[in-house]
Amino acid sequence: MKYLTWTDEAALEVVREHAEKPGPMLLTLQALQERFGYVETSLLPSIAKELNVSRAEVHGVLTYYSDFRTTPPASRQIHLCVAEACQALGVRDVVKELAAAGYEVGERSKDGATDVVGVYCLGNCALGPAALVDGNLCGRVSAKSLVAQVTS
């Protein structure tokens, strides 16, 4: 995924693009993350001002939703489903094997190149264990197949 480098000016442009929509805050933060890969918290006061809400409200939304990042992402992303249907197909073991290979779920990989995120369900429950690798859905994954994908 290609992101633009964060500058406050460019970010405020994005904020203004969305400020007039009904219920704009979540949309705005999503747009920022889509553009820059994360949301820089130092901009919170300006976002609050543009949207005419308090800083606490922006902080509240930014920290409530698990999708949001406040630091730049690694170059590769694994979102591994750790919910029941994938548990039934051994995802607990996949999590252990990934950790042993330097890919702890919930952390950045030891080589610094991949974020490994545990999520609850990707809607691929008949072909589990499932994962999103850089946003692409993968079925019947193993620790080995995931590591191979992000190191290829």
Binding site: C81, C86, Y120, N124
Partner: peptide
């Protein structure tokens, strides 16, 4: 917001 594990009908 089909969040239940084991469901994918909405998505499909």
């Amino acid at each position: 917001d089909e969040g239940d594990s084991g469901t994918f009908a909405d998505r499909m």
